[in-house]
């Protein structure tokens, strides 16, 4: 029977995992009373679903509808004036959701907060561009890579992939080597879809090397006739280097140059 391959996550998996293996967790601690982070959690109020400290940074979980108001509070009341990073993690296979994180920086106290929210597949998230202009590019990248739509984004277009690209490359369902559309993209675009048959998969990739194609390739030391069949193996051709003949015109002798 053919081995079952999961379709919802086609990324590389470990080929062997001990059956008693339990992955440890990165240490997490509660927010201490009276610390700066406690005041941040207080300022956010009911919106906080869960808050803890991991590796020196506060991690706040919120509902995805609250993302704008949360970041606004962080910016205006808590001094987190820079949104350094924002992106998503694909949990579609497990939960049918994306996890979106906003990495916030407080320049005065050199502290960082990560705001995390989960959003179901197919729902759009509110833009944060009015608060942080850096979100302009970052949200476009998130849309490009995961297909998460952004509400009210001023320029909702793909950023890294071409505008006419199909699929979102960082989804777990998207294979590393690209899908059918990706492999024919250049042929479709330059010649048209009907030329897929004319060109064929063997000529599609300009850097493809076929070991048995003697029309276009030959192995050094195993040169054979044009279009010869080498599937049964080829004979070795001795390598000959060009040689210099030293001519002495006074005596008329010729000899090979063997100097190194």
């Amino acid at each position: 029977m053919r081995k079952y391959v999961p379709k919802d996550n086609v990324q590389k998996k470990s080929y062997y995992t001990d059956r008693f293996w339990v992955a440890p967790r990165v240490p997490q601690s509660d927010v201490e009373e009276g610390s700066h982070f406690a005041s941040v959690v207080d300022a956010l109020g009911d919106r906080v679903l869960c808050a803890y400290i991991s590796l020196g940074q506060l991690i706040v979980t919120i509902k995805h509808q609250d993302n704008y108001s949360t970041l606004e509070t962080l910016k205006d009341e808590c001094g987190y004036k820079v949104c350094t990073e924002l992106s998503a993690v694909d949990y579609l296979a497990q939960d049918g959701e994306f996890e979106i994180f906003y990495q916030m920086l407080n320049l005065d106290d050199a502290l960082r907060v990560r705001v995390v929210c989960r959003i179901p597949d197919g729902e759009a998230i509110e833009t944060t561009v009015p608060l942080f202009k850096s979100a302009n590019f970052a949200e476009r990248e998130m849309y490009d890579m995961f297909g998460i739509k952004i509400n009210n984004h001023p320029f909702h277009k793909r950023i890294i992939m071409p505008d006419d690209w199909e699929g979102h490359p960082l989804l777990k369902t998207y294979p590393l080597q690209g899908d059918e559309f990706a492999s024919w993209y250049e042929v479709d675009k330059i010649f048209g879809k009907e030329y897929r048959d004319v060109i064929g998969p063997e000529n599609r990739d300009a850097s493809r090397i076929d070991r048995y194609d003697t029309k276009r390739f030959s192995r050094v030391g195993y040169e054979v006739d044009f279009d010869a069949d080498i599937s049964k193996g080829e004979s070795k051709t001795p390598i000959e280097y060009s040689q210099t003949v030293l001519v002495d015109y006074t005596t008329g002798t010729e000899q090979l140059d063997e100097r190194r």
């Binding site: 992955a23 990165v26 991991s54 350094t84 994180f101 990495q103 960082r112």
Partner: peptide, 25 residues
């Protein structure tokens, strides 16, 4: 271990950070 981390460093160009989400794999 399972968990995520974001570590900023000062590269010559500015803040270079890696966010890594690990599922223990």
């Amino acid at each position: 271990p399972k968990g995520d981390v974001y570590v900023p460093t000062e590269s010559p160009k500015g803040e270079l950070g890696f966010y890594i989400k690990s599922e223990g794999e």
